[in-house]
Design a binder for these strands. Structure first.
Lengths: 207, 207
DNA sequence: CGTCGCATTGATATCGCTCAAATCCGGTGG
DNA sequence: CCACCGGATTTGAGCGATATCAATGCGACG
């Protein structure tokens, strides 16, 4: 089997792996079913969603190339969410048993796996904190300050602004208006999908 | 040393642990310094804060009892944020070296550590999902459905309703009103701090 | 008692949601 | 090459849910 590799995919796991090609909106697994594989996004994007009563969907996570899927479900008996490709995607998968054997046998693999879990936990908690903010502008600022790079907190939006709005718990209209207002007020600068804070004039600076 | 235990704290780690009492606003560690301990909140609350250039602070997370602090710092050479007690708190800590030795030597501890990370990841994502709901009533229903016990999703509130409101991303006034309305409408029943759903005429309930 | 914090309810303001419409842009087919 | 289409982006108007401000009752605690 020809297995082209993403750099983030563990070498040790490659012998056990198989590939899946998913069309957009194609489902990978479903909430309530028992997990039998560990999945890895090689190309595209796979969305973890849960559905409310009226069919409203909540995006728990949008996994991009280089990420594992539903790490949290590995040791539970059922998936707690649906996984759907949000665009044509390529996914690698390995049997759960193979993965667990590797965790037990390969010390360094286990370490990097724990690091990965911890990193995802951090970002999830940052998101909780972000969604606790009441105003749209504060959420945008929080996003830039916590995920932006460099002294200006520059951030390249990888998805559409519409998708970003949903991740921020806003409607896309609100996000558009908020970004426009922040830009007009000189708080941020925008070049296409690249955002950054503009203000570095420290009001408390003496002399 | 008398080491009273939070149920979430791993048994195997207890011999290496020491306690810290923190006053409100007392700092536990600082961004940029190398991590030397793993921390666990036993009582109170510890806030992870990152500072912008004008001293504006962004709360990345407010760690409550039963949570580890900055688990991801195990692999990085420096903390990426400050940790400050937001109220008088009790924190357990173990030397990073002890912790890592235990992870490497004790297979079952490593497994339970990964399970703990995964469980915390799940609850964090459940909170993200909850905060993505737009109405106060939906958030309360989500809380009961995802954390309640039994067929009626009974839930005992351990903190004050005021604190609960903050975890739900609401003001306490809104929560009071919402609970009162849901009770009047017969959606929930309330006995003090015990809540439960009264009717389950929900056709597509998940569980 | 007096004080402090939680719980509760009322009145009003405000921000984001909803519905609606115009524009832009990339892709697609004639 | 151009007309058309669908989705993203943007702006407008109005409404409603939640925040905000305010007042009161209540229980704990010194």
């Amino acid at each position: 089997m020809s297995l082209s590799r993403h750099p983030g995919f563990p070498l040790a796991l490659q012998p056990c792996v198989s590939r899946l090609d998913l069309g957009a909106t194609q489902q990978l697994f479903r909430a309530g079913t028992p997990p039998r594989y560990i999945h890895f996004v090689e190309e595209g994007a796979v969305r973890l969603v849960r559905h409310g009563r009226q069919g409203e969907e909540v995006v728990l996570h949008d996994a991009r190339p280089g990420e594992f899927l539903a790490e949290a479900s590995l040791d539970s008996s059922r998936y707690h969410c649906d996984a759907v490709a949000s665009q044509p995607s390529v996914v690698l998968r390995a049997a759960k048993a193979d993965f667990q054997r590797l965790l037990a046998d390969d010390q360094s693999f286990a370490r990097s796996w724990m690091a990965l879990l911890a990193a995802q936990l951090r970002t999830a908690r940052a998101r909780v904190e972000r969604l606790s903010l009441r105003s749209a502008e504060e959420r945008v600022r929080h996003l830039l300050l916590s995920e932006g790079r460099g002294s200006r907190c520059e951030l390249e939006i990888t998805s559409s602004l519409k998708d970003l709005a949903r991740r921020l718990g806003l409607t896309h209209e609100s996000l558009y208006r908020t970004l426009a207002r922040m830009q007009k007020d000189g708080v941020i600068a925008r070049e296409g999908l690249r955002l950054r804070l503009t203000k570095d004039d420290d009001p408390d600076r003496m002399t």
